[in-house]
Design a binder for these strands. Sequence first.
DNA 1: CTCAGTGAGTTGGTTTATCAAACCAACTGC
DNA 2: GCAGTTGGTTTGATAAACCAACTCACTGAG
Lengths: 169, 169
Amino acid sequence: MTAARAEKTTRDCTIADALEVVGDRWSLLVVRELFYAERRFTEIARNTGAPRDILATRLRKLAGHGVITRERYSERPPRYEYRLTEAGRALAPVLLTLKRWGHEHVRKGADPVRFDHTCGHEFVAEVHCTACGDALGVGDLTPQPAGGERGGVSPARGVGHEAVARPAR
Amino acid sequence: MTAARAEKTTRDCTIADALEVVGDRWSLLVVRELFYAERRFTEIARNTGAPRDILATRLRKLAGHGVITRERYSERPPRYEYRLTEAGRALAPVLLTLKRWGHEHVRKGADPVRFDHTCGHEFVAEVHCTACGDALGVGDLTPQPAGGERGGVSPARGVGHEAVARPAR
DNA sequence: CTCAGTGAGTTGGTTTATCAAACCAACTGC
DNA sequence: GCAGTTGGTTTGATAAACCAACTCACTGAG
């Protein structure tokens, strides 16, 4: 069950690592509920729509990966409540980015849930470069082989047309 | 198959909408490959590790949702190549945010794939507020009921402890 | 021309996961 | 002391994932 991914030549990639943990149908919805400060099993089950047995499995998996904690608040009918860890809270940018994409490209109508930023306006997520602070634009990135080992993007081919990077224009 | 989600009282949410499209084990990896300008079935299968039949299914599903296009480049052995649409390209921020999380909270070692930004530094994704341009901090958000309809976060309880929002400190 | 090889899937059969509904065990209110 | 709630686990049925083998057309070597 430990999901031994890289068998032969799959791309070695931290996106795949992340998806190993939260890349199923329910996990990110569970994290969303914990963001809304829901802590109880039944509430999470209702709000996500996840079947109860699967939810139990996912909660244990997420706890195992350090995304949430299972704190026992009752002995001997062993009962737990769930909270985000630091790692779980760090998923906020992922959820907010996904929320924006879902709003703009899946649902076309009004977004039923909105957040207000401390600046007073509605919060809409935008990805910036940590180094220079600029917003990410189309073709602003060029992949680096990075290690010299395999796993990177082959520099000869690939990347350059409508991919992430746009070398010249 | 059309996944009639909201049966009773699940939270109405564009995150769930997004996950309906890309919330399975392989779809985001497929999109990642298309970002790397891979267009061929066999390459995508190899680099993601997805079984070929499932990959065929996913490619059709993603095309159906307008995330990718299937362009026929050969008649009569009908063969297609795949490209991202505008909506698919808009997933770049999601992938980059997920990549950062995977790097920082799942894998602890060096990231095998890196991107350089036009500013000259390695690109690390950071989520900002579109309105004011500031980077998102802990407790910067407060949920709004937004419609007046159901689906929002109940304002009385929830949200306020270690959730997204932090009303006071 | 034949024949091995490749690319892009499809098909068949098996394992695994998902799901809904029922069940359970302890507590809670009355 | 009994109906109701909470937080699950168990039970089968159904659907999906998975793997291996196969097809179909083409490509290049000999």
